[in-house]
Design a protein around this nucleic acid. Structure first.
Lengths: 355, 355
DNA sequence: ATGAAAGCGCTAACAA
DNA sequence: TTGTTAGCGCTTTCAT
């Protein structure tokens, strides 16, 4: 053979069989999932296997039936802190059930996402699409092949989990109204985002019910940079209260506003969405609609596992709403008594930071 | 609906072969990596395959030869922003090379890490251990099985990439010394952390060369909570300058210090390590030793790919140091003229926030 | 409960 | 170039 000893392949089921003096299939059974065979032989086989360092090969195991013990979550952007806790929740639930969770980054690009999907789909038993940017039909195609759960997006025929945006937005708007604000601005996230649509709609409904003026600017990328741009538009109008599509946008907007000489929350109150890492130690600490991040992840995996067990044709369960919760921190304050302030841009020295 | 026809298995190489009137192996060749076969037949086969929706099954493909086009990075804690950019860098490089990167969370636990390793190792062609908590020997065992790159840790016989901690620490200490601080405290991270050892050592060397007093407290978990605890210890002594094991710890310490009535940077200057997401918008913005996060990830993957191509026995390349860079922001300031301040704990009302 | 045999979908020699 | 023939390591009928 070629490689003399570097290629000492892992022991296989056959090696174990030989060492134990049984048939390969017996070894296989000693390691198979259900009933967890418990005869003396099985016990002995496992001991021997352990001694000679046998590890079952997941690739080979998966070939005959598709049982790979792998689950995947495709996130729009690993770099976005929104996903951290989701991943953690999913990971934990998955590993407790004996599954490995693969985290795949779509790099905020539809093409990359589709490619990632194609690459991972055949490997895994189930799939979580966290904030997918793909079309409904693309998702449906994937869901036909493997149990799928969609996150932060409603689909009629694919199980989905999402934050209760409507009620979350509602409480945000009420909070602002309670502080005396009468004219609210929504800073929109990416157009392709389903959640953005939901939030904007809920925003309009809530403001109209409470008879507040509603405005919308955007779309902006859901990033700090996006928020910085938004701040410019915000500064041009006399906005006193804004709700941003998400925390990143909100934090970016706050920073931008500050640079432009506006004070938060004195001049303008800002509310974010999601309660991501960092939202509590930015300045001022961000008032935000907290998404049940960890639960979202855990729930998605549980749903997947349930589908796997029952081999349910997926479509059965409708969207599941997990409650959001307004976290009041320092970025919101009562509206100033002053009516028209013209001096805004000049009071205090605009903080100049290098970009 | 039940699924009478749900079990329409994906078309296989045989289906394509039949449709194209060729042998299966010919189909296989039409899809194989190297020469990217270009005969007319190959072209035709690919067209037909595409029509009937054939997708090559990575599981089956991997079985004979282990070529799964999968790479894995095992991170100590997906929840830690330190890894975001590393993952992004790795992901990008990997996907450009046609590989899929699996991100696996070790949940900051050695056991979980070992398990994750065992699960993923057989699946992938190469492995990146980002800030592993496992023993050198465990890592060596893994590296025997698959090309491996270790991050943020030096190993003689396994390729590794890491930030140039020594020079980074050096610049941090010099910065502090330049501001007039004479007594520095190092807030230590987890004991098992190799990087922590490095940083502490570099800290001692730099301080002694510059004839500064050096103290060390800890270990603390490298989290915000850890920093909060550290603040208590910090407040007990009259420290004016601290370098923390990482940004999370630093940010936590700053928050804790504030709650205890100390002002940063007026009373105490704080420097972190890594320049993670959030370190620029916390209050005050954190002065920190920026790690070349994205490069670390990209480099690790490149190294892996190189190993795969050349089937180098890994051990050849020594550790690679990527330069760190001190980012001066708002958490450091000149040492106060005042010599002994006894009033510290009582001036101003200690901000009391619910934990 | 165990053994024998037939694949899972693909790749990799070897011939032709 | 293309077809033929064995497997990769495991699971799964089907007998025993």
């Amino acid at each position: 053979m070629d490689a003399p000893e570097d290629a000492r392949p892992n022991p296989t089921i056959y090696d174990v069989a030989k060492a134990a003096g049984v048939a390969p299939s017996t070894v296989s059974r000693a390691f198979s999932r259900p009933g967890r065979v418990n005869s003396e032989t099985a016990e002995r086989i496992r001991r021997i296997a352990n001694e000679i360092g046998y590890r079952t090969n997941p690739l080979a195991r998966g070939l005959p039936n598709g049982r790979t013990a792998l689950l995947a979550v495709i996130v729009a952007d690993v770099t976005n802190p929104f996903f951290f806790e989701i991943i953690r929740g999913a990971e934990k639930t998955a590993s407790e059930a004996g599954y490995t969770l693969l985290v795949v980054d779509a790099q905020e690009s539809v093409d990359a996402e589709r490619e990632a999907l194609e690459r991972t789909l055949p490997l895994v038993e189930g799939l979580i699409l966290a904030t997918s940017r793909m079309s409904d039909s693309s998702i449906r195609v994937a869901a036909k092949q493997r149990p799928t759960v969609v996150m932060n997006r409603v689909m009629t025929d694919v199980p989905s989990v999402l934050t209760d945006n409507a009620r979350g937005m509602r409480s945000a708007v009420e909070h602002l109204a309670g502080l005396g604000h009468t004219s609210l601005t929504y800073v929109a996230g990416p157009e392709a985002s389903w959640a953005d649509g939901m939030r904007w709609r809920a925003f309009r409904e809530a403001t109209s019910e409470l008879e507040l003026k509603a405005r919308r600017i955007g779309p902006y990328p859901p990033t700090l940079a996006g928020g910085l741009s938004a701040a410019q538009a915000l500064a041009k109008h006399s906005t006193t209260a804004v709700v941003a599509y998400n925390d990143l946008l909100a934090i970016g907007a706050i920073r931008g506003l500050k640079r432009l000489g506006r004070s938060v929350p004195a001049d303008v109150s800002v509310i974010g969405f999601d309660n991501i890492f960092g939202s509590d130690f930015c300045t001022p600490p961000l008032t935000t609609v907290a998404a049940p991040l960890r639960h979202l992840g855990a729930f998605a995996v549980q749903n997947l596992l349930a589908q796997l067990r029952s081999s349910t044709p997926a479509g059965s369960s409708g969207p599941t709403l997990l409650p959001a919760k307004l976290v009041e921190r320092g970025s919101t304050a009562p509206r100033r008594a002053t009516k028209k302030r013209r001096a805004t841009a000049t009071d205090g020295n605009p903080v100049r930071q290098p970009a």
